Simulated scan of single mutants.
Amino acid sequence: MTQEAPTRRVVVPGLIVTAAGAAAGYVVASGSSAADPKPPAAEANAVGTAAGGGDTATPLANLADIPANGGLVLEDASMVLTRDGGNGVKAFTSVCTHQGCNVSSVEGGKIICPCHGSKFDAQTGAPVAGPAGEPLAPIPVTVRDDAVFRG
């Protein structure tokens, strides 16, 4: 069975529909803010860079709120704070590097993502189980006067 070449009756309407769709897409996209330049700290997950800004004068949490050898997920700040056995605190983005779900808890030295079972080392942010292959981005924090601050 041989295939016939498309006729003008088939090709021309297809080209017209394609051109109309492209024009409509251009009009919609040109009115959208999605393509506007973003500040340098913006990332796809809206958390910002690992060193990202934030209020350095307002405490993120009190040291007593973070269990020793455990952690605390700060949903409003999109970060997870982890604490060693003493007063050492580390912070990481709470957005899982697998598919962008938010981690839910810190248990047994691991930061847990409930979506697909990824687990990250609570002291380094490195993936230790599950499908995530990239570490959680670190966020600099300091401990002053028994409180944790960004920066």
Rank of each mutant, 00 (worst) to 15 (best):
D145R: 15
S118P: 04
S32D: 13
R150N: 04
R144A: 13
A22W: 13
N87T: 11
V95R: 01
S118V: 02
R8K: 14
V95L: 01
G53S: 09
S32W: 09
C101T: 06
P6E: 10
K90Y: 10
A51F: 03
P114I: 00
D36W: 06
L74M: 07
Y26C: 12
P13I: 00
P6S: 10
A126Y: 02
R83T: 01
L15C: 01
V148P: 11
L74A: 09
G70V: 04
I111D: 08
E134H: 01
G54D: 07
A23K: 06
E75H: 13
G53H: 10
P37H: 11
R83H: 03
A91R: 00
V141S: 07
A19K: 15
A44T: 04
V143D: 15
G31S: 14
C96H: 01
V128Q: 04
G14Y: 03
G100W: 05
A23M: 08
A23G: 14
A147L: 13
A35F: 05
G25Q: 12
G71Q: 03
G125R: 00
G21C: 13
V17M: 07
A42N: 02
G31A: 13
S94F: 07
D76Y: 09
M79V: 09
Q99I: 02
V141A: 06
C115L: 07
S33Y: 07
S78Q: 15
I139W: 05
M79Q: 12
K119G: 01
G31I: 01
I112T: 07
T18I: 15
S104G: 08
A68C: 02
T142R: 15
V95S: 06
E4Q: 10
A126M: 02
L81K: 06
V11D: 04
N69R: 14
D84H: 07
A64F: 10
G14H: 04
A51G: 12
S78Y: 13
R144V: 13
Y26H: 11
A132L: 05
T58A: 10
N87Y: 00
E43V: 11
A91D: 06
F149S: 12
A61N: 05
T58R: 08
K90G: 09
V10K: 09
V89Q: 06
P37K: 13
